[in-house]
Design a protein around this nucleic acid. Structure first.
Length: 588
RNA sequence: GUCCCCGUAGCUCAAUUGGAUAGAGUGUUGGCCUCCGAAGCCGAAGGUUACAGGUUCGACUCCUGUCGGGGAUACCA
């Protein structure tokens, strides 16, 4: 079914067009902030009046004359300088709820009619090292974007642009060869249990031992020349590394898989061609020994044109080259209509130059939407970059473990009598959910202060609050079941409902807005719009819960209220598990 | 120097991109459990949206400038 905002937007825009005789005067329908102004408000009349050089209130009256919204709204009201305020009819709201109720999978939300191919580039860990907190935001924000866009009905191609080809692999290969001289005979027998330790060891040796440094350099050259033995060892390191980061994706309920990996190594043999073509197009020129493109009018600190360096003076390629190759692959082979890059804000200049260069080269055009989705830095409670007490980087694994541990303590305190296995599962859902939700609920552009205490707080806009709201509803349904009322049986095939209490209506109106929340969050790539909606919904439910007894209500009322409970639970569950990748629990 | 992001209640943050009286949480404070899970709900207090101009019916939002914080800025990614 079509979203209410879209329906209203369409009909009212049409009426505006008819009255003014002009195209391009959108109705600009939005949800009213203040209930005094109804449920939805039309903001576009003032702009249209300006265009027509006419009185906005009069224009609004003419538009209202022309409007037929009787099936949806009560008679529209004109207010202020020329707003049109709309109040939904109870019957319409009830009808919507019944439609949502009858669609178990998609809660009545239509798929887009014209699916696009959307490439989402996110996570992208440097796999020589263990994943640390710096990877968290890209990983989960990108995952939520992928899930939302996919749910809308677009074709999402996830791309995990892993760092698997850098110079650091030279020293890892050299060290592995040194420690296990017979590794080539049986690479599978060698395990790297402590990836980070192994990296540190290689780095220390590289810093202090010239002979080793030279060997490492030689290995890089061999790697890039596809030397068979070196490639074998490299592949082994990649495989070992994968054993470390795939479980973290799994723990985070991140949808990335091995098949989504398309890292630096994949593009390695496409880089020379990128440079050749840019040279042929006369875009790349030599400057200070390096091959550079000078896109746009970016300046360096001396006020001179800023180069986008695609080949170093020693002949090596850089991430600019790789990103250009990747963009060509995504547009030419993956047929991307849109590419979303989820990386921190510090890389914004790089992406501006990348996009500009690709445009100059004719590798992309205005039909392809290139979007750099930025996010701020993760800070500690002291406001400084998030580090361990000793100043090291925080490993993602440790961070998640601590979150689960803290959640375990909370569950133990609140609900000690649950079976141990269930407590464990709840603690995991709460702990991991808290970490993810805290990040999602923040505006991604702001720097984000990481605080276990805040995110695990049981009150406020947190994962536990959302999970609690869900668990409470499930508790009602269990109680109903005990009284011989099966909620699903009761609600299947329900044909009509009537609201009696204000709290019921408020909750119902929240429920029918879920599609709009997803649409906006996906469009802007802002998960916090979604969490914000879910939180409003949960609060709306809590008010309803306090005001309207469900099980003790009369039979008719009970049916309406059970439906409201069930749809709330399904919406929260869908939002959390399907779109945010956060588990819900039946009890907590 | 140039460019980008940010500056909103004591604190942590929103504000659907130009809409009406700037909202939540937390903290402070007053109330609500013989009633479906109080990890909850209702109320009070708390603001010159850093500052100064400008654009217009209307500005936290757009433009100009100033102050303050962060980041980027030639061969790491």
């Amino acid at each position: 079914m079509k979203s209410i905002t879209d329906t209203l937007e369409q009909r009212i825009s049409q009426a505006i067009g008819k009255v003014t005789g002009q195209k391009g005067c959108p109705a600009l329908v939005s949800v009213s902030k203040n209930p005094k102004f109804g449920d939805y408000q039309v903001n576009g009349v003032m702009a249209a009046a300006k265009k027509m050089k006419t009185n906005p209130r009069q224009l609004a009256e003419q538009i209202v004359e022309e409007l037929d919204l009787d099936d949806i709204c009560q008679p529209p009201e004109i207010a202020g300088p020329g707003f049109i305020n709309l109040r939904l009819k109870d019957e319409f709201v009830a009808g919507r709820l019944l439609e949502i109720n009858s669609d178990k999978d998609r809660l009545g939300i239509e798929k887009v009619k014209m699916p696009k191919t959307v490439v989402v580039d996110y996570s992208g860990p440097n796999i020589a090292k263990q994943m640390h907190v710096g990877h968290l935001r890209s990983t989960i924000i990108g995952d939520c974007i992928s899930r939302m866009v996919e749910f809308e009905g677009h074709i999402v191609v996830r791309q995990n642009h892993i760092g698997d080809w850098g110079t650091q692999f030279g020293m890892l290969i050299a060290l592995l060869k040194e420690q296990y001289p017979d590794i080539l005979e049986n690479p599978g027998s060698v395990e790297i249990a402590d990836l980070e330790g192994f990296y540190q060891e290689a780095k220390a040796k590289s810093d202090n031992n010239e002979a080793f440094t030279q060997t490492a350099r030689d290995e890089v050259v061999k790697l890039h020349n596809h030397d068979k033995d070196t490639i074998t060892i490299w592949q082994h390191i990649v495989d070992e590394s994968r054993k470390h980061y795939l479980p973290i994706y799994q723990q985070l309920s991140v949808t990335l898989n091995t098949k989504d990996e398309r890292g630096e190594s994949f593009y390695a043999d496409k880089l020379a061609d990128v440079v050749e073509q840019l040279k042929a197009k006369k875009l790349a020129v030599e400057s200070d020994g390096a091959m550079c493109v000078f896109p746009g009018d970016f300046k360096n600190k001396d006020g001179e044109p800023l180069p986008f360096i695609i080949q170093k003076s020693d002949g090596a390629f850089l991430y600019a080259t790789t990103d250009l190759a990747a963009m060509r692959f995504r547009i030419d082979e993956l047929k991307a209509d849109k590419i979303i890059y989820v990386t921190d804000a510090r890389q914004s200049l790089h992406f501006q130059m990348l996009f500009e260069t690709a445009k100059m080269a004719g590798w992309t055009n205005d039909d392809i939407n290139l979007m750099h989705v930025t996010f701020g830095t993760m800070l500690g409670t002291d406001g400084k970059p998030f580090k361990t007490r000793t100043g090291g980087t925080v490993k993602l694994k440790d961070l998640l473990e601590e979150a689960v541990q803290r959640a375990t303590a909370a569950v133990e305190e609140k609900n000690p009598d649950l079976p141990a296995e269930q407590k464990k599962q709840i603690a995991k859902a709460i702990g991991i959910g808290a970490v993810k939700y805290a990040d999602y609920s923040n505006n991604r552009n702001s720097d984000f202060i990481f605080s276990f205490d805040k995110m695990l707080a049981m009150e406020g806009n947190t994962a536990p609050y959302m999970q609690y709201a869900y668990a409470r509803i499930k508790s009602i349904e269990r109680k109903a079941e005990d009284n011989g009322v099966n909620t699903q049986n009761k609600l299947t095939g329900i044909k009509q409902l009537a609201f009696t209490e204000e709290a019921e209506k408020e909750l119902a109106k929240m429920l029918i807005r879920y599609d709009q929340a997803i649409a906006v969050a996906a469009e802007e790539c802002r998960p916090n719009y979604l969490t914000s909606y879910l939180y409003d919904l949960a609060q709306s439910f809590s008010r309803f819960y306090n005001a309207c007894p469900v099980l003790k209500a009369s039979s008719d009322q009970r049916a309406v209220r059970l439906l409201l409970c069930d749809l709330t639970a399904r919406t929260i569950k869908h939002g959390l598990t399907e779109l945010l990748g956060i588990e819900v629990v039946e009890q907590m």
